[in-house]
């Protein structure tokens, strides 16, 4: 009973916030509802016992991707009304692709047999939880790909730093040492001004 209630709550909120994401006029609201959608999807994952996926969804998508979106939306000067102006022109292609995806979804749903009453849980009772199971192979059997993935991330980090961090002569920079070395007597000059003469 409780599970069914939670499922409909998460699923309903997920659909609602997903609909708001694509209809919201204000892009910042759109991104915030996207985050709500991620949270609800994570709730659905927890319900079927896939807690690892749920946490990854929160950490990766909410923690990194959505925040990145928010930065882009808030910091870049993008005219969203302008982006939407081509809707009428591309309606045919967009509608075609949408219809194709919808057809795929329908085929998938028709083709799948839903067994009522069967538990949807991905973890059989008594077995390891999926976080534990993943942890056991990740550092043993899959140690090599795991290390390799770390190496790829290192390259990404080195790249991000090399391509952005550089000394430019045409930009004024803060020189903290110079700021600290400033003394009052060097920079403040006290002038006694007699009235009516000016400096």
């Amino acid at each position: 009973m409780f599970e069914a209630l939670a499922f409909y709550l998460f699923a309903g909120l997920l659909l609602f916030s997903a609909a708001v994401v694509i209809t919201a006029r204000n892009p910042v609201h759109g991104v915030l509802f996207l985050i709500l959608a991620f949270f609800n999807a994570a709730g659905l994952f927890v319900l079927i016992g896939a807690e690892f996926l749920a946490f990854i969804l929160l950490i990766v998508y909410v923690g990194a991707v959505a925040v990145l979106f928010l930065f882009v939306v808030m910091m870049l000067d993008i005219d969203f009304a302008d982006l939407r102006s081509g809707v009428r022109r591309h309606a045919l292609i967009g509608g075609g692709v949408g219809a194709l995806l919808l057809a795929e979804l329908v085929f998938m749903l028709v083709g799948r047999e839903f067994v009522p009453g069967e538990s949807l849980s991905v973890t059989p009772p008594g077995a390891l939880t999926n976080t534990e199971a993943l942890g056991r192979v990740l550092y043993t059997e899959y140690a090599f790909p795991f290390q390799l993935a770390g190496l790829i991330l290192l390259v990404a980090m080195v790249g991000a730093i090399t391509l952005t961090l550089r000394r430019r002569d045409d930009v004024r920079r803060q020189d903290i040492a110079a700021q600290h070395a400033r003394r009052r007597e060097d920079v403040v000059e006290i002038q006694k001004v007699t009235p009516g003469t000016g400096v």
Binding site: F144, P145, L148, A149, L151, I152, V155, A156, V158, G159, T162, L163, R166
Partner: peptide, 30 residues
């Protein structure tokens, strides 16, 4: 790693490791 890969997973990771480094090198002259 690409040359030695005997698994699709390693094949892809080897390719990405070299490709990502090469993308950065191509843009190195900032």
């Amino acid at each position: 790693i690409m040359v030695s890969a005997s698994n699709l997973l390693i094949l892809y990771m080897g390719i990405e490791l070299q490709a990502l480094s090469l993308y950065i090198l191509a843009a190195f002259y900032r």
